[in-house]
Write a protein that binds this DNA or RNA. Structure first.
Length: 269
DNA sequence: CCATGTACCTGAAGGC
DNA sequence: TGCCTTCAGGTACATG
């Protein structure tokens, strides 16, 4: 569900609602969903700022940080007051001293909220964010050259560039005309530049469209995104490619469902 | 180092 | 209707 664009929308929602609020208490409803790696007290701490790196959401507090990963079905929902309607699958409740709250809803229980003193203990293992102002084509090309993986696995790995998941990797590779099984180290020169630009366009467009909702993704106010209406290959199996009319094909690659146009996307090896 | 499989979980959808 | 299998946006870990 949530890849870079969706986490960015959620970060924006939190910036508008909870910065400056004081935590009254954090209640883990499902123990595994909240991993407390610090003995510093949470209650009384103020939310200072909201950040993001790749698919990680960063909530910076007075003394410590909360790092959130939504994995497959996680949602971060802001409420002016605790909703009496029975919201199912709530795994963690973050209560503020003004009566408002943030609820971590996560059907499949894969997501995590970590409480840390040093956010780098998690974030240092994550590659540079795909939309970080510091990233550039030179860095991207060098990373491709060093990798022995296929391009699909490379982009999903989060190791060199972070934030791209299964939806946007397929959409980016289609727009770049590159077959997902292509060797990363064979994508050079012009091809590397095209792929780099398409990735950024696909991610930025998804942000403009408020993210992609397949089934679970919602923003902090519970709203769905619109970007799923603009997919060209993801979940378009069998439909005609909009460029050449060849039916979109689905295969398994890097352990994931992979959608592409067998005519437009050339394999580089 | 890389590819593949499995585990972590729940629920929806499709086949029979 | 109901049972069974498969699949799902992610990542960590074990195995060849």
């Amino acid at each position: 569900m949530p890849e870079l664009p969706e986490v960015e929308i959620i970060a924006g929602g939190l910036r508008k609602t909870v910065v400056g609020k004081i935590i009254q208490d954090i209640i883990p409803v499902w123990d595994k969903s909240f991993e407390n790696r610090s003995s510093v007290k949470l209650s009384g701490q103020r939310i200072e700022s909201i950040g993001r790196k790749g698919k990680y959401l960063i909530i910076r507090l007075t003394k410590t940080s909360l790092i959130v990963h939504l994995r497959m079905t996680g949602q971060i929902l802001y409420m002016n007051q605790i909703n009496k309607d029975q919201l199912s699958h709530i795994r963690v409740k973050i209560l503020f001293n003004d009566g408002s709250c943030v609820l971590f809803k996560d059907t499949r229980k894969f997501g995590r909220i970590y409480h840390l003193e040093d956010e780098q203990s998690i974030l240092s293992k994550v590659g540079i964010d795909a939309l970080d102002p510091q990233i550039n084509l030179g860095y991207f090309s060098e990373a491709l050259k060093k990798s022995g993986m296929n391009i699909k696995a490379f982009l999903l790995s989060q190791k060199y560039i972070s934030g791209i998941g299964n939806i946007y990797v397929d959409e980016s590779l289609f727009r770049a005309g590159i077959h997902p099984a292509s060797a990363a180290d064979k994508i050079k020169g012009n091809n590397a530049g095209i792929l780099y630009n398409r990735i950024r366009e696909v991610l930025n467009t998804a942000i403009e469209n408020m993210g992609s909702t397949i089934s679970d993704y919602r923003d902090t106010f519970g709203n769905s995104g619109n970007n799923q209406n603009y997919f060209k290959v993801y979940q378009c199996t069998g439909q005609p490619c909009e460029v050449c009319n060849t039916p979109i094909k689905k295969i398994k690659l890097a352990g994931r469902g992979t959608h592409f146009c067998p005519n437009c996307q050339k394999i580089l090896k």
